[in-house]
Design a protein around this nucleic acid. Structure first.
Length: 450
DNA sequence: TCTGGGGTCCTAGGACCC
DNA sequence: TCTGGGGTCCTAGGACCC
């Protein structure tokens, strides 16, 4: 633990929903739920208006629909828009310090002590955080973030959670245990449902309770690494560094199907598509990996993984698909498959043109030459699959808008953008040739351009 | 119409090696 | 004529995070 409050944690508030409300004026101030919109979807983010009705992250979308009133927007995610806004925010953080560690698309740590001569007093970092929050809101078109600053990652993160949304909490050095000990143990990172259950069973409910237990007790309860970690966190002992550029360890793609699949040929095409996504991402990053893993979730939600490690790394779609096919055959698909996933780990950076590529080798030529299916172009999809709620669209006559909903042969579009007032709704034929998928709208106002 | 998708880290057993 | 002791690699599963 440091002597000064020099670790900052930023957490963007209801981030996906906030970007949707920025880009869709008619949704501002209204409940918005972003996530899977199919029958097996779950909520990624609920706006604060939707949380008031009980919608929560990780809840099934079906449950959120039951809880939220008519008129709640249920939207699929627009990840390009979230990524673009996240990049703007991460850029602002890097203006504060070269040591920025993104944790996810909406969360990051910053080591403020990496800049020489900075005022790290409580007053100093408070002023710094106020300025940061203003710049974030201005540069993102109104997305807010909660900031915590403290003497460690632990305290910074807890600080950012204390006054959400749009919060700012500096935990003054020396007051860590006062802040920490009253909190429920579940607020510590690493205490999920399983650990919480075990801790509750022995009467540990608060971090203070946890701090009263001996190290051997906690190791017996949670294992060596985890137990030791809990022992230290309960004492606010946290010297984890802010690490920019964490190395990626694995790349994977998975999909839960709308209905359980049994047809081996259909499953095979799904594997091909996922192998193509994984292979493409590996090649784009100039990575390759030695271990191919197949993930399979059966009709009854039992989940297993099967993997194979190759003598040489690969980034080849066909090689990945071929191994995944074999692993699927070994695992079996009896009863139906709910989810399939394909992953590659054991990554290394390596020069293109690897002479010993596995793709040319096992399984014989017949297997190796099986064609790899490419993802279909949106125009080729059946009309009911081409449009999804929240999607950006453009109509040749009516202009830019977004998909509110779809019905049989119909799609409902609201014509508005981030810089317009709330706009009108029109219901169009799903195969209207004047209607096209579009890129995310520009949210910056002209006066904000450099 | 219960239970996503993309990750990280840890544990544990067996094989294998010296 | 009972049995070593590490170390690494691989596989599988599980907990957890956002």
């Amino acid at each position: 633990m440091r002597r000064e409050a020099s670790v900052l944690h930023l957490d963007l508030d209801a981030f996906f929903a906030a970007v949707e409300q920025r880009d869709k004026p008619s949704l501002r101030g209204r409940p918005v739920v972003v996530g899977g919109v199919g029958g097996r979807g779950v909520v990624a983010t609920a706006s604060y208006e939707a949380r008031a009705f009980g919608a929560r992250s990780a809840m099934s979308t079906a449950e959120a629909r039951r809880r939220c009133p008519a008129g709640t927007a249920f939207l699929g995610g627009r990840f390009a828009a979230y990524r673009a806004t996240s990049d703007v925010v991460m850029g602002l953080l890097r203006e504060l310090s070269p040591l920025v560690e993104p944790v996810s698309i909406d969360e990051a740590y910053v080591d403020l002590s990496a800049v020489e001569g900075r005022d790290l007093s409580v007053a100093g970092v408070t002023a710094l955080a106020r300025g940061l929050k203003e710049r974030i809101a201005a540069a993102t078109g109104g997305v807010t973030g909660s900031v915590g600053i403290g003497s460690s990652k632990l305290m910074a993160k807890l600080g950012s959670e204390l006054e959400k949304p749009d919060g700012l909490v500096v935990v003054a050095p020396g007051t860590e245990l006062e802040v920490l000990h009253p909190l429920p143990v579940t607020r510590l990172g690493g205490v999920g449902p399983a650990t919480a259950e075990r801790l509750h069973a022995v009467g540990v409910r608060t971090v203070g309770d946890l701090a009263a237990r001996s190290l051997p007790d906690l190791v017996a309860l949670a294992g060596r690494a985890h137990g030791t970690g809990l022992y230290q966190l309960a004492r606010a002992e946290d010297d984890r560094a802010v690490v920019p550029d964490r190395e990626t360890k694995s790349v994977s793609a998975e999909e839960t199907f709308e209905r359980d699949l049994t047809d081996r040929a259909v499953l095979g095409r799904e594997i091909d598509a996922m192998a193509a996504r994984v292979g493409g991402r590996l090649r784009a990053a100039a990575w390759s990996g030695r271990t191919v893993t197949l993930k399979l979730r059966r009709y009854d939600f039992t989940t297993l993984t099967r993997s194979q490690t190759l003598p040489q790394p690969t980034d080849d779609t066909r090689a990945i698909a071929q191994i995944a096919h074999r692993l699927l055959d070994e695992a079996g698909t009896a009863g139906g498959v709910r989810l399939l996933g394909v992953g590659v780990s054991g990554l290394s950076l390596y020069a293109q043109g690897d002479l010993f590529s596995i793709g040319e080798d096992p399984g014989g030529p017949a297997e190796a030459e099986r064609p790899v299916v490419e993802a279909p172009e949106p125009e080729q999809l059946p009309a009911e699959r081409r449009w999804w709620p929240g999607q950006d669209v453009r109509h040749d006559e009516l202009g830019a808008g977004w998909v509110w909903g779809r019905g049989i042969g119909r799609v409902t579009v609201r014509f508005e953008g981030p810089l317009t007032p709330p706009g009108p709704v029109r219901t169009l034929r799903a195969d209207d040739p004047a209607l096209h998928p579009a890129d995310p709208p520009e949210w910056r106002t002209a006066t904000m351009e450099p």
